[in-house]
């Protein structure tokens, strides 16, 4: 027995979607979605849960993560209920629910708060630079150290507990019994999703989009690897150096195309960009660009006279690591991979 709660609709509309009430349950969206299957059918079911406010059912569901927002359903919906956008909003809502700090939710719902966080981190970086007497070497050293520490601590403090919460909501609470062996044997699904996002390939619409995504993920992870573990900014190896250039270039070039399509709003998925979406692409772009420039300035030997560039790069880095990665859209990438893994566990 589930109690109907019409107030949930108002809550969810703060995460983006607002037209789902128009749905008259024709099922066109589910029929048109190339990822929906007989065993796991969506998005109509999620719309239904949302309009009726069945929060527990939504929290226990992995389906929002199965959607790659091709937007087919939104273009087919006879009532313009924007089912694809609803799936996106549910992902944001779920991210907020998984996050034990509650900061994700606050930032999704309030733009001023997000801006304040960005400003605050910027002031912090300035203060640090001031403190370090703008000593470039010192700053770069701390910067490098920061990257490694930030990754480790966010992992431990934010991601691990959040993933455990996600696991609790979707596997434990609904009462699914999973033998331990299965946890191990299904690992493959997790890595494949993480790197290849292979499900997106099943989307009918656009192989190019999948390819872009794929390249971006590879580029981003490689850039992370080169800077953190190969210490790109101080490397002596030509190969590493060039690799770094290529990867950072990939990141900012692909993101330019992303920004471009968000601006044009041609496709359904680009129609409703939320601040969090903008932050994500713009910061990714800035990351790639400033990293590229910084190394370029090093190679040209003009960084010493252009310390502002590094301070800018560092600011972007800090904001990325402390705001966007733990509380923003970046988490979708992580949760989606785990969702596939958990879905595999739930399979009979």
């Amino acid at each position: 027995m589930s109690r109907v709660n019409p107030k949930f609709a108002t809550e969810l509309s703060k995460y983006g979607s607002s037209d789902f009430n128009a749905c008259f349950n024709c099922g066109n969206c589910t029929a048109t979605c190339s990822l929906s299957t007989a065993d796991s059918s969506f998005p109509r079911e999620m719309i239904r849960y949302t309009t009726l406010g069945l929060e527990d059912d939504i929290k226990a569901s992995l389906k929002p993560w199965e959607c790659y927002y091709c937007g087919e359903c939104s273009s087919e919906c006879p009532r313009q209920a924007e089912p694809g956008e609803l799936m996106m909003s549910l992902r944001r809502w779920l991210t907020a629910k998984y996050d034990w700090t509650g900061l994700s939710g606050l930032m999704y719902k309030s733009l001023p708060l997000s801006i304040a966080a960005f400003v605050l981190t910027f002031v912090g970086v300035l203060a640090f630079a001031f403190n370090a007497d703008f000593d470039l070497e010192h700053m770069m050293h701390v910067g490098h150290l920061f990257e490694a520490i930030a990754i480790a601590s966010i992992m431990v403090v934010i991601f691990v507990p959040n993933i455990i919460r996600m696991w609790y909501f979707t596997i434990v609470k609904p009462g699914t019994k999973v033998p331990f062996k299965k946890y191990v044997s299904s690992m493959g699904e997790f890595f494949v999703t993480m790197f290849v996002q292979k499900r997106a390939l099943d989307c009918d619409d656009n192989r190019f989009r999948w390819f872009e995504h794929f390249i971006l993920v590879i580029g981003y992870l490689s850039l992370l690897f080169t800077t953190v573990f190969m210490d790109w900014f101080s490397t002596q190896y030509l190969a590493v150096n060039i690799f770094g250039y290529v990867m950072s270039a990939i990141v900012f070039i692909v993101t330019v195309d992303f920004v471009n399509s968000r601006m044009k709003k041609k496709k359904a998925l680009n129609k409703h960009s939320q601040p969090s979406d903008w932050f994500f692409v713009i910061w990714l772009f800035l990351m790639g660009l400033t990293a590229f420039m910084t190394r370029l300035f090093i190679d040209l030997n003009i960084l010493e006279t252009n310390k502002w560039l590094y301070i800018l790069h560092f600011t972007v880095l800090v904001q990325w690591a402390l705001i966007i990665v733990p509380f923003g859209k970046w988490t979708h990438f992580l949760y989606r991979s785990f969702a596939m893994y958990f879905a595999k566990l739930k399979e009979k």
């Binding site: 589930s2 109907v4 239904r48």
Partner: peptide
């Protein structure tokens, strides 16, 4: 419309 779920209103 909700897979014959029992609803309480």
């Amino acid at each position: 419309l909700t897979a014959k779920k029992e609803m309480e209103i």
